[in-house]
């Protein structure tokens, strides 16, 4: 793919908290219709990198460019416990300046939450909140999706729904960057894997037929090489 087609272009991005560099000199590109998996241990810098890409944190060095709109699913739902699922999505629909054409309701249904649309989300389970957060991130049909542990708290049925959504997003040309520890479910959906080691992108390479175990082995190799 030509470099000019990249939906996300990250050039030499670094971010520190205090004196500690959490993300160091990361450069990468993600292309439309592609899902890139971001793997790494706790504290490797995956979440910080995603937050920098989303514009929630400023990079101390380097640049981030994306083509089109960005959606993000993070560890927190970014929604209000006292509102219902429908009210939360209606609120975000308004903030995005979108017409109230039932897109929120369609997403609620798509993610298997129609039965709970008018319940306050304070009563939701972790898995229901995660699905609603995914619905929120899709409201404005983003061109770039940043998913931080998208399958957390989901049972098998809910995971299947989310994996279907990921496939649909790729098919319509969205670029996805997915940080996860749940490799078994997600390895099959991705073309490339980025390995984060101590804030650095140690390697970004095609999945090359590796299964989840193969990805873990490769990660361990890179950790050992980095020492």
């Amino acid at each position: 793919m030509a470099a000019s087609e990249a939906a996300v272009r990250v050039h030499d991005v670094s971010r520190r908290f205090g004196h500690r560099w959490v993300v160091r000199n990361v450069s990468m590109e993600v292309f439309p219709g592609e899902a890139v998996l971001l793997v790494g241990g706790n504290g490797a810098g995956k979440t910080t990198l995603l937050r920098v890409l989303a514009g929630l944190l400023r990079a101390n060095r380097g640049t981030v460019d994306h083509r089109g709109m960005v959606g993000m699913v993070a560890h927190h739902t970014m929604m209000y416990d006292a509102l219902t699922a429908r009210e939360n999505l209606t609120f975000y629909t308004r903030l995005h300046g979108l017409p109230r054409d039932g897109r929120g309701d369609r997403l609620i249904e798509r993610l298997g939450l129609a039965h709970a649309a008018d319940q306050r989300i304070a009563t939701f389970s972790r898995g229901m909140l995660q699905r609603l957060a995914i619905a929120r991130s899709l409201l404005h049909d983003p061109d770039v999706l940043l998913f931080d542990e998208p399958l957390t708290g989901l049972d098998d049925a809910a995971s299947r729904i989310v994996l279907d959504v990921i496939r649909e997003l790729k098919a319509r040309g969205a670029a996805l960057l997915i940080a996860t520890h749940q490799l078994v479910e997600l390895v099959g959906e991705t073309a490339r894997v980025g390995y984060m080691v101590s804030g650095r992108l140690a390697a970004l390479e095609p999945i090359g037929g590796r299964d989840a175990g193969g990805v873990v082995s490769r990660y361990k190799e890179l950790v050992t090489d980095g020492r």
Binding site: A54, G55, L56, V70, G71, M72, A74, H76, T77, M78, M79, Y80, D81, Y92, L95, H96, G97, R136, H140
Partner: peptide, 15 residues
């Protein structure tokens, strides 16, 4: 209210 569930991040992700 915006700190709960990091809703402020959600607002900042909108235009």
């Amino acid at each position: 209210l915006e700190r709960e569930n990091r809703a402020l991040d959600g607002l900042r992700l909108t235009p």
